[in-house]
Design a protein around this nucleic acid. Structure first.
Lengths: 255, 255
DNA sequence: GACGAGTTTCCGTTGAACGGAACAGCTTTG
DNA sequence: CAAAGCTGTTCCGTTCAACGGAAACTCGTC
């Protein structure tokens, strides 16, 4: 993703995505002036570009004058592999896992050194988790991230080990040596129990999901309170991950 | 959504969305040449624009040379109200409904005269349905569509009644008089049982989901085989719809 | 009524975008 | 094995879609 900290892009495409990029989980709506300021574009330029985005359904306007991301972008996004292929194939297995645990079930893909959550099944009474579809978190600090990183290319792993490890709690993995040890254990065990990495009150059990070329296409996890007994969760998570892998056409030898 | 049947757009934004619009459920990947032909753009223009879309994460390229919708578009789309607000609030209730029925549970929003499915929970053994997140179907031919149309503005209803009603099966509602009767019944009953409209082997029970201004923000349904007894489904679907409405902040009088 | 903030419209200027041509690479066919 | 066909990439003189400041309009507040 191109840096937005430097000068504002001069191409139309760049400006369009800079405008769309103003929206986030913390800012799902914005006024015209907010869009102009945040994108670093003149007001009349913003007005013109926003008008076109509305025309194409990428943005919609509230009765109150604010803008939000339009249904058309959601439809286009629904065609991405993470949603169209992976998520569709995974859904029945996520439901299975949810029914036997009644806890939060999450599916994420890797993008660079981040885990991007593409699905989350949550229940009324399950422990509150900070993720929602679209959330990004560093690989090292999440169960799904650790299983994807442990099975990523050596270059990606070295990159992660060379990058400062963000700390969320006192338990977050924060040294390269500590991360190496955890990644080796993940490869040995085929799953990970990730405790108190993002919040001290939760832990997750995660297993890798393989794609049709055997590569790790996603990570699957169940998130439970930190004091829960996870021993029975491990085989359930691993079985569901294998089921998804099978549905994605993964070779038998890596499932 | 602008017509693409007429001349190709000359604006950059128009061209960008025309290129992105080449992708669909039936065409999740496309080569550069396919994109050029389908979008009606010169090859070098397409190459340049596609390069920018890759740069901004809107498109990604397969090792084999095909392109597909990128993760970034999915992330942006995840911020649209249908996903970010509605779907998040609805998820626990969809899970509840799935657990008591073990059938396909669907959530859709209205866009013009179409129902756009934003969520579907399906199971291994449930009756196969043709919808997935992103699918669009005419309002008159779906349970979710009928509950949204019955509670839409008079202008929208008149527009639907004045538009030719597409027929999918011998049972599809196909006359304005027939549609008027069904809409009146939906308003009276507060739910609908929609039988064999898209496929003769399925029927659905649908109820309206209200937003914080009391408007019908979405339709919720369970799809079952046509020979299933739906009497027990009606209260469950209505209760789940009311739960979602409450979560969305709907006024008490319309829930 | 004045003021401030946000939004909308206009139009002379201009540089980002255009896309044909040429070239490179790969696969298929005879 | 050469020819043909198709796909993808690069270049650059030309051009028109986009630019954005200024002015005007709208709305809410004091």
């Amino acid at each position: 993703m191109p840096s937005m900290g430097t000068s504002e892009p001069r191409s139309i495409t760049g400006r369009v995505f800079t405008l769309l990029g103003v929206f986030s989980e913390s800012r799902p709506t914005a006024t015209l002036s907010e869009l102009s300021r945040s994108a670093g574009l003149p007001l009349s330029t913003t007005h013109r570009l926003v008008g076109e985005l509305i025309h194409w359904g990428a943005l919609e306007r509230d009765p109150g004058g604010g803008y939000h991301i339009g249904l058309r972008l959601w439809e286009l996004g629904a065609l991405s592999p993470g949603s169209f292929g992976l998520r569709e194939a995974a859904m029945p297995f996520l439901e299975d896992l949810y029914e036997v645990t009644h806890e939060n079930v999450q599916l994420a893909v890797r993008d660079g050194l981040e885990a991007v959550y593409v699905e989350r099944i949550s229940a009324h009474h399950a422990v509150n988790v900070v993720t929602r579809p679209g959330t990004r978190l560093p690989l090292h600090a999440t169960g799904v991230g650790l299983v994807m990183l442990a099975n990523a290319s050596r270059a990606v792993q070295e990159h992660a080990l060379a990058t400062p490890l963000r700390r969320f709690t006192s338990r977050t993995i924060s040294t390269p040596a500590g991360l190496r040890r955890v990644l080796a254990a993940v490869r040995r065990d085929g799953y990970v129990v990730s405790v108190g990495q993002i919040e001290l009150i939760t832990q997750s059990v995660a297993a890798p999901v393989h794609g049709q070329d055997g590569e790790v296409a996603a990570g699957l996890s169940v998130v439970v309170p930190v004091d829960a007994d996870v021993r029975l969760l491990v085989p359930a998570v691993r079985a569901a991950a294998r089921g998804i892998s099978r549905a994605l056409g993964a070779p038998r030898c890596v499932r």
